[in-house]
Every structure is written in C-alpha cells, then in structure tokens.
C-alpha cells in the first residue's frame, strides 16, 4: 500500500493539539510533577520520588488512612444514592403523563432542581435543614425526632443523601421517560391482548426498552456522586468530624487547607485513575450488553 505522504495535514491538527496541550496535558503534567516532590513553602521543592504514592496506598500511614476512609465514604454514598435514585427515577417516569399539557408541566417541574447551581442547592438545604431556623430541621425536631446535621453523623448523611436525591432523581426520571416514550402503543395493546399483568408489562416491555438509557443514567449518577464536592461542602463542610468528608473534599483540605501540594497531587492522580477505571468497566459492560442484544 503506497499512501501519498502529506505533511501538511499536521497544520490542521496543530490548533487542536495546542488547545489540548494547554487545557489538559500541561496542567496534568504539573500535577504529576507536584506528586513526586515535597515542599516546605517558600517555593522550594524537594524530590520525593514515589514516596507519596507509597504512603497513599498504605492504609497504615496517616495519608493512606484518610484516603481510604474518604474513598469508602464516597463509595457508600454512591451506592446509597444509586439504590434510591434509580428505582425512584423509574417509578417517577412510569407515573408521568403520556400526553397532553401535563407532559410539559411535569417536565418543567422535574427539570427545576437540575437548573439550580450546585452551591445554591447546597445553600438551600443548609438553611432548609437547620434545626433552629430551617423549615425541615425545625419541624422534624418539633415532631420529637432529634435531628442536627452539624452535630450528628446520621443526620448529616441523611441530609446530603436527601439533597442529592432531590437534586438528581429528575435526571434518571427524564432519561427513563425518554426510553418509555420510544415504545409504540402497539406493544401495550398487544400485551393487553396477551393478558399480561402490569408487572409483566414492566419486566418484558418497559424495562428492556429502558435498559440503555438506564445504563447511561447509572453511569452519569455514579460518576457525579463519586466526584461530589460542592453540595456536601456547603452543607456540612465535611463534618461533623470527618464523617461526610469525601475524596474531593479531602483533596481540597489537603491542597488548600494544609498546602500539602505533593500529597494532594498524588491523591488526585490516584483518584483520577480510579474514576477512569470505573468508567472503563461501565463502558465495557454497556458495549457488551449492546453486542449481545444486536
């Protein structure tokens, strides 16, 4: 195969390469650079090799311990919100109207939480859930249930989980609704003639048709919740204690609070790799499922 060599093509790629270099590669390399050094301020850096990485992956060290703790908290949080938002989103999508003006009204109402900036969502819930002046916190306490997210771990967790469910269930619902809308009426009519129960219709018609959007929804919600920062930071600031300190919050504490640039850089690289790995697993599962169906 003789292909004519045309070096001019590089000229067309060059702008993209430059943009990618400045937006991604160079910042990333800076982080890599920090992660192998230590600093005591004064802009003096010392070579540390893979020392931070060894610490980070060893749970017996101070750094490794707090990283693992934050990671577990993060995974637990993602698992809880997926377990709530996915079934709830499906249920909402199933009960949404199929036609008429109600469709538009429902869509607007559902989209509202997603349109609010994240730190505003945090602020809303921070105030809403306060036990002294917040409507929710005050009412719950008056009902005799002790609830204080600044002092009690369980309260703090419930607050951020409910907040995330409030903020993001709509996304799952809207994606599922799109999947449901693609089912022709004939399927429902045929199912009625076949005598299928409501459950059989769900299992054999609706769920298979929602499968793909559901995988996308799970992927999006997992990634988002795994990288969550703003809302819990605004509400609890990672507390009480470290009980709601997720990896990203810990990262900021490390980098900007303690100014441990080396440790923070190593942590962000590992954090990033974990996210990439999970993405890869999701992607593989999705494409496998697709191929099996084709």
């Amino acid at each position: 195969m003789d292909k004519p060599l045309n070096q001019k093509a590089w000229l067309f790629v060059l702008p993209v390469l430059l943009i990618v270099a400045f937006s991604a590669l160079i910042p990333l390399m800076t982080v890599v650079n920090y992660s192998v050094q230590d600093t005591f301020g004064n802009n003096q850096f010392f070579w540390n090799g893979i020392g931070w990485y060894i610490d980070l992956l060893d749970p017996t060290t101070d750094l490794g311990g707090r990283f693992l703790d934050a990671l577990w908290r993060n995974l637990l949080f993602s698992a809880i919100i997926l377990a709530i938002e996915v079934p709830l989103g499906i249920a909402v999508a199933l009960s949404m109207p199929r036609d008429g003006w109600r469709v538009a009204a429902t869509l607007v109402v559902l989209a509202l939480p997603m349109l609010i900036p994240w730190n505003v969502v945090g602020t809303i819930w921070q105030i809403f859930a306060r036990e002294d002046i917040g409507l929710l916190g005050y009412v719950v306490n008056r009902l005799g249930i002790p609830y204080n997210y600044t002092a009690d771990t369980l309260s703090a967790w419930i607050t951020i989980v409910v907040m995330d469910v409030w903020h993001w269930t709509s996304l799952v619902a809207l994606l599922c609704y799109a999947g449901l809308r693609s089912i022709p009426d004939a399927f429902y009519q045929a199912a009625r003639i076949d005598g299928a129960s409501r459950w059989a219709v769900f299992m054999n018609i609706q769920l298979p048709k929602m499968n793909r959007v559901l995988l996308i929804a799970v992927l999006l919600r997992f990634m988002d919740s795994f990288m969550i920062y703003t809302e819990p930071f605004v509400v609890t600031g990672g507390g009480p204690g470290n009980s709601t300190t997720f990896v990203s919050i810990d990262l900021v504490k490390l980098a900007l609070g303690q100014f441990d640039l080396g440790k923070a850089a190593a942590m962000s690289i590992v954090y990033n790799l974990i996210i990439l790995a999970i993405c890869w697993v999701f992607y593989t599962v999705m494409t496998r499922l697709d191929a099996r169906r084709g």
Binding site: P184, F187, Q189, A190, I193
Partner: peptide
Amino acid sequence: PTESRNIAQVFQFPV
C-alpha cells in the same frame, strides 16, 4: 376488557 375477549390482534409493526 380485551384480555377477556377471545380475540387476538396482529399490529402493523411486529410486537
């Protein structure tokens, strides 16, 4: 209801 009638229906698009 349709499931209690002894009829079957085949639609335009295969179900």
